[in-house]
Every structure is written in C-alpha cells, then in structure tokens.
Amino acid sequence: MLRTQFEEDLKNLHEQFYKMGREVSIAINNSVKAFIDHDKELALEVIEHDADINNYEVSLEKKSFEMIALQQPVTTDLRTLVTVLKASSDLERMGDHAVSIAKSTIRVKGSKRVLEIEEDIEQMAGMVTEMVDDVLDAYVITDEKKAKDVAKSDTAVNQQFSSIYKKCIDAMKENPETVVVGADYLQVAGYLERIGDYVTNICEWIVYLKTGKISELNSNRTEEI
C-alpha cells in the first residue's frame, strides 16, 4: 500500500514538474514577444504570472523533501527526487530571467530601434524555447540521448549571443542614438543565453537520473556519486 502511494506521489511530481516547465516556456516566449512588440501589458502579465511558477517550485520542493523524509527512498527513486529538486530550481531561475526581459520592456522608452537585431533576438528566443520544450520531452521519458542532444544545441545559442553582441556594439558605435536600446538588446540576449545554460543543467540532471553519474555536458568532467 505504501509503495503504491509512493508511486502515485512520484507520478504527480513528474506531472507538476512538466506543467511548471510548460509555464516557463510560455513565459519566455511572451517576455520576448512583449519586448519586440513593445507590449507593456503582456510584459506585466509575465511579471504577475511569475508567482505561479514560484509556487510550483515551492510545492515540488516541499513534496520532494517530505517523500525523502517519510519514505527514505534509495537508488532510482532517490535520484528521481533529487532531479526534481534540482531541475525545478533551474526552471524557477529561467522564469526569473523571463521576468527580467519583461521588465526591460517596461523600462524601454521610445528609443531608436534596430530591427535586424530585434529579429536576431526573436530567433534566439525561438532556439531557447525549443530547447526548453525538448528538455521537458526528454525528462518525461528519461531520454539520456535526447538530453545530450539538447545540451549540444546550446552551442548555437551561445553563437547567436556572440553575433548579437557584435551587432549591438557596431550599431552603438555607428549611431549614438542606439546606445540606450543597444544596452537593452544586450541585456535581453544575455538573459536568453543564461536560460540556455539552465536548460543544459536540466539535461545534466536527466543524465544523472538515468545513469547515476553527474556529467558536465559539453565538458570532459564526469564524476560518480
């Protein structure tokens, strides 16, 4: 009976984590859309909705600790709970970065815009949200290979960030009127780049869940715990 309840609780944890991830993906999408469209109402929605994402993390953390204390799980079950704890923390930070992008929208004045850079930021956001969606799919079926593939795609996100950085610097040098908006572009691209890093963290936790090894993906360091 206890085991059946434990398995039901684990299933609920998985479902909650996936729902949290979907909310984070929507928040990232909406924050960038708000920034590109100068849509302050949508930006405010992202900021207000962040409380829901935070509540998910608190709920997942509380339930995970409760299950560890009461059930004293070992091996795979314990790895599952550790993964939920760590990966939900990464999701929460990703939600925080979506809020930061939304706040950039509210701060931005009627500055001179550089449409080419905005298109690049939009493309970068698409790459990042695809990573988020793919890592959630990998999590649901504990797909180690898919997780590693998702982590590899962070390289393209980093390259896009470097490209945007260069274009922003060039634009600011050529036209001082773009300095204010250029600084905002750099900030938003930086937040997206960090979100990609957090997705890579979740990929590492999926590999841990499957193998029991903590691996730093895109690096040679691997240690057993």
Rank of each mutant, 00 (worst) to 15 (best):
S163K: 14
I36Y: 10
K11C: 04
G126T: 13
A27N: 11
M94P: 05
V181G: 00
I195V: 14
A138V: 01
Y208G: 03
N158T: 10
K146N: 06
D149P: 01
C203H: 02
S31M: 05
E15L: 14
E122G: 15
L60N: 01
S163H: 12
D50N: 15
I53S: 04
A138E: 01
A27T: 09
E41G: 11
K167I: 01
E15T: 12
E7L: 12
N218T: 04
Y191T: 02
V128T: 07
A151G: 06
E48S: 14
D9G: 01
Y56H: 03
A156I: 04
E15Q: 12
I68E: 06
I117Y: 00
R113C: 00
Q160W: 03
E116K: 07
D90L: 02
L81F: 09
E41R: 11
V99T: 10
D184S: 06
R194C: 07
E66G: 00
E57L: 07
Y139E: 08
P73D: 14
V140S: 08
F161H: 13
V150G: 02
T76A: 14
A87M: 10
A34I: 12
R113N: 01
G190V: 05
N29C: 09
A51S: 12
M172P: 10
S25Q: 11
I225L: 12
V24Q: 00
P176G: 02
D52A: 15
L78S: 04
I169V: 14
E119A: 02
A98S: 14
D197Y: 06
K11Q: 15
T76Y: 10
N29W: 09
F161S: 03
D154T: 15
V132Q: 10
L70N: 05
L44R: 09
E118S: 08
E92P: 02
